[in-house]
């Protein structure tokens, strides 16, 4: 094993062409999944939860899969997005768009701060710093119980309708309607994220992931790129957090816990680091597994531990890596899927 990074989208020309075709394919696949999810699953609420976590995993993937930054800080943005949007709705009477916008903006601002601090350190110190900041955010939320409800969580979070003035245009009271809202937001974010990762900006991120010194020597201000990807990731994660609060009508303290960061990371990795579609797969697999197993076998998290180890050691590409190498083999592509999916 010589790869130094979480390597899935290797950049050989053949692979790149293939990736182009696969890229368009996955956008279509993603849209198909959006439509099918609520039909196939027992409840629209479950489908909504999958997409919310897919959003968070996608944002995590931008940091981990595309830039090589392992951050335990995602819970800060997820929790802050949930709390701040809920507080804006409860105390400031903010509407749907207002609440979501406030969440995104505060996520971006927080991520700007966290990113600027954390990227001053590299490697293990970077990881430790994100861990310390998440713990601080948790204890802060715990201490400010007048605002956050502390251990009991923030109760009675509304799910406001889309309204102009006093007239309600669309109510999201029904699970299916709310699913449609979350699905459209996810689709929008997915397409935008895809455009970003396919752009020169995205290629520079990959360059930083592969070899930061070299990218920096080529004249890229790698710090600026890392901060920008933090802001992007923070904004998306906060949006996911805000939607999660609206889904549950409740913001539990666990939203801002280190465990939430771990959960998002595990979804990202098991789905496939470096693949946006993989994030949807990872979140889907884990949320579904949890829903199916938690009542019959409460210790199902054991499987996540095993899967995490297996993915890191044997199948670096995660679910997406496995799936795409299968697809590649069936298409008779000349590239060697084994090697490229990180099996080296």
């Amino acid at each position: 094993m010589t790869t130094k990074t979480l390597d899935t989208v290797a950049a050989s020309p053949g692979r790149r062409r293939f990736k182009g075709r696969l890229g368009a394919g996955t956008t279509l696949a993603m849209l198909a999944v959006m439509v099918l999810l609520p039909l196939v699953l027992p409840s629209a609420t479950l489908a909504t939860e999958i997409l919310i976590f897919a959003m968070a995993a996608l944002a995590c993937n931008l940091l981990l899969g595309f830039t090589g930054l392992l951050s335990f800080g995602q819970a800060i943005f997820f929790g802050a997005g949930a709390y701040i949007s809920a507080l804006a709705m409860i105390h400031l009477n903010a509407g749907l768009i207002g609440a979501l916008l406030i969440a995104v903006v505060s996520g971006c601002v927080l991520a700007l701060g966290v990113g600027m601090l954390c990227i001053r350190r590299k490697g293990i110190y970077f990881v430790m710093l994100t861990l310390a900041l998440t713990q601080m955010a948790y204890f802060l939320a715990y201490t400010l119980s007048d605002w956050t409800g502390g251990d009991n969580g923030l109760l009675d979070v509304p799910r406001p309708p889309l309204a102009v003035g006093e007239t309600t245009l669309i109510s999201f009271a029904s699970p299916l309607a709310f699913y449609a809202l979350v699905a459209s937001l996810f689709a929008l974010i997915y397409v935008v994220a895809r455009r970003i990762t396919d752009s020169p900006f995205g290629s520079t991120l990959l360059a930083i992931r592969e070899n930061e010194q070299r990218a920096s020597a080529l004249g890229y201000d790698t710090r600026l790129f890392k901060i920008m990807v933090f802001v992007l990731s923070g904004g998306i994660t906060a949006l996911a957090g805000a939607l999660y609060g609206m889904l549950l009508n409740f913001v539990p303290l666990s939203n801002i816990e280190l465990l939430m960061s771990e959960q998002i990371l595990i979804m990202t990795i098991i789905g496939g680091t470096g693949s946006l579609f993989g994030s949807l797969l990872g979140a889907g697999a884990i949320v579904l597994l949890g829903d199916l197993l938690s009542s019959i076998w409460p210790r199902w998290m054991l499987l996540l531990g095993v899967a995490l180890i297996a993915v890191v050691i044997f199948m670096r590409g995660g679910l997406w890596g496995g799936l795409s190498s299968l697809l590649e083999r069936r298409r008779g592509s000349h590239t060697k899927p084994h090697k490229e999916a990180g099996h080296d």
Binding site: G305, V312, I313
Partner: peptide, 24 residues
């Protein structure tokens, strides 16, 4: 088997071990 891997991977594998130990 994972000493030679970057810290990122070591963290993830040991995170998995921690989860397994906790659930067991």
């Amino acid at each position: 088997r994972i000493y030679h891997l970057p810290h990122t991977f070591q963290i993830l594998v040991t995170l998995g071990i921690a989860l397994i130990i906790q659930e067991l």
